[in-house]
Computed example of a mutant assay.
Amino acid sequence: MDDHPLFRQALAGTVQLVAPDAQVELCEDFRTLRERLESHETVSLILLDLNLPDVDGIAGLPFLKGQYPHIPVAVVSARDDLEVVQTAIACGASGFISKVSGVPSLQAALDALLRGEEWFDGLEQLPDEDPLTPMQLRILNGVQRGLMNKQIAFEAGITEATVKYHLSNIFRKMGVQTRNQLLALTR
């Protein structure tokens, strides 16, 4: 999914080259992706752009991994600095594909991702990451939506104390100390 029609179509064409039997669905925004996920039982891979018109930066990734933890999500972005990649990893990304990659690199990435492997484009050595759990991703999504701990607890079916416990672990994993820092990092 990408907000630029030309890139979206080129990406879909490359996916068809790598996996000719794959059914490719194109989504121009996050709302369309959510609707499609709700109506399809099997999805093998989501390619997520960080610049969609209706979601702020990486904020869509925690939602996807919290709601659909079994579906691998690879981030596709022109922003490919190490901090962005590390944030994507912590939020559960299975891969990261830079938009400046050539077709052979994109084909290699898609091939690896469709085999269930991880792919982090152009990064020789990634630091050991401790990714967020599905519950932590749901809590992060609640924070991103501006919910208070009590509201997040109600939605997740857990206690407010458990939300606070998870938030402290999220802060530690993401290397931040406050909600504002967390929001700045994940937008």
Rank of each mutant, 00 (worst) to 15 (best):
R115L: 14
A109M: 10
L106P: 01
G122W: 07
L123A: 02
I97E: 01
A88W: 04
P127H: 09
A109F: 06
P104E: 09
A88K: 06
G116D: 00
W119V: 01
K99W: 03
F96E: 03
P104V: 07
V84T: 15
S105K: 05
D111V: 02
V100D: 08
L113H: 11
R115S: 14
G116C: 00
D128Y: 11
K99F: 03
I89R: 14
A93K: 06
D111L: 12
V103F: 10
G116Y: 03
R115T: 08
C91L: 15
L126Y: 10
D111K: 14
E124T: 14
G92M: 11
G116K: 01
I97K: 00
V84W: 02
A93Y: 09
L110H: 05
A108T: 11
A112Y: 05
I89L: 15
A88C: 13
D111E: 15
I97P: 02
E118Y: 05
V84Q: 06
K99G: 03
Q125T: 15
P104R: 04
G92H: 13
F96T: 02
V85S: 00
R115Q: 15
A93I: 09
I97A: 02
Q107P: 02
T87G: 12
E124S: 13
S105V: 13
G102D: 07
S94E: 13
A88D: 10
W119S: 00
S94M: 10
Q107W: 01
F120D: 03
L113S: 11
G92Q: 09
I89H: 04
A112T: 11
I97N: 00
P104L: 07
V100N: 05
A112R: 15
F120L: 05
G102T: 04
G95Y: 08
A108C: 02
L123D: 00
D111I: 02
L106K: 08
L126A: 10
L123C: 06
